[in-house]
């Protein structure tokens, strides 16, 4: 198992969002964390990548506990994965190439021409071969997310965390991003942990899903997408996968 989450409780202050969550991510799989808006998916991911300290529990990444890691050990663990944030989070004052090259500049002694070649090859891999000299503001939302993926994988991490990769994208761009994720997983054996609630995208890329729920404060379903869609016993999971609206949300003319 490349990632093991053990008895993880997360929240803000005294408020508990998820309590004693346990799950594992296998090497090379596309693992999706699913749930309704505001149920703690992104907070769970932020805890898994060490941005958000948990209330209790452990996150093991390739055999080391990130929660307990400090100093150099924590830095070593952080380099095992890359992260793409929902907005892309490219640095606006740098060109796309400089954004992608930044981790190489900071953490390697590679000569400049090689750094440029590595960055350009990653950009080519995500379909942005000609965009290196552009500024992030000149890219569309989908292109910014692709560039962010290129930056996340420039150090050849084995794991990529993606926060809402399809959010705000048109179906064609979103499908292109799904293809990229599947391709990277298939050809490079990269493990993906993706936070999403875009059903079409999930069906296209996910190997395994966990579904978190605020009222249960934990995982209410786990399995393959088709299994959950067809055989979910939990009514909420069934409604989610079959896009059935909550009756209380309908307009009641008075």
């Amino acid at each position: 198992m490349v990632i093991s989450v053990k008895d993880l409780s997360i929240g803000y202050g005294d408020r508990v969002i998820l309590e004693k969550v346990n799950f594992q991510v296998r090497r090379g799989e596309v693992f999706v964390i699913l749930g309704e808006s505001g149920c703690g998916k992104s907070t769970l991911m932020k805890t898994m990548i060490g941005l958000n300290p948990p209330q209790s529990g452990e996150v093991w990444i390739e055999g080391s506990n990130l929660v307990a890691a400090v100093g150099d050990e924590r830095l070593r663990l952080l380099r095992k994965f890359g992260v793409m944030y929902q907005s892309g989070a490219l640095f606006g004052s740098m060109t796309v190439l400089e954004n992608v090259r930044l981790p190489l500049d900071e953490f390697t002694d590679l000569p400049k021409p090689l750094k440029e070649l590595v960055s350009l090859s990653k950009l080519k891999l995500v379909g942005l071969g000609g965009a290196g000299s552009k500024m992030p503001s000149e890219l569309s939302g989908g292109m910014q997310k692709r560039a962010a993926i290129a930056r996340a994988m420039v150090m050849d991490p084995g794991i990529l965390f993606l926060d809402e990769p399809s959010a705000g994208l048109d179906p064609i761009t979103s499908a292109g991003l799904d293809l990229l994720i599947s391709g990277l997983s298939h050809h490079f054996g990269i493990t993906f942990v993706i936070v999403s609630h875009e059903l079409a995208s999930i069906y296209a890329i996910a190997d395994r899903i966990i579904m978190v729920d605020c009222s249960a404060k934990g995982i209410i379903a786990e399995g393959k997408p088709a299994e959950l869609r067809d055989r979910a016993t939990d009514p909420w999971v069934h409604r989610f996968f079959n896009r059935e609206a909550d009756a209380s949300h309908s307009v009641q003319p008075t």
């Binding site: 390697t108 021409p113 090689l114 750094k115 070649l117 590595v118 090859s121 050849d156």
Partner: peptide, 11 residues
């Protein structure tokens, strides 16, 4: 062969 390795070969 990581990204840096491929870059060296291409160079």
């Amino acid at each position: 062969c990581g990204g840096a390795g491929f870059a060296l070969l291409r160079y």
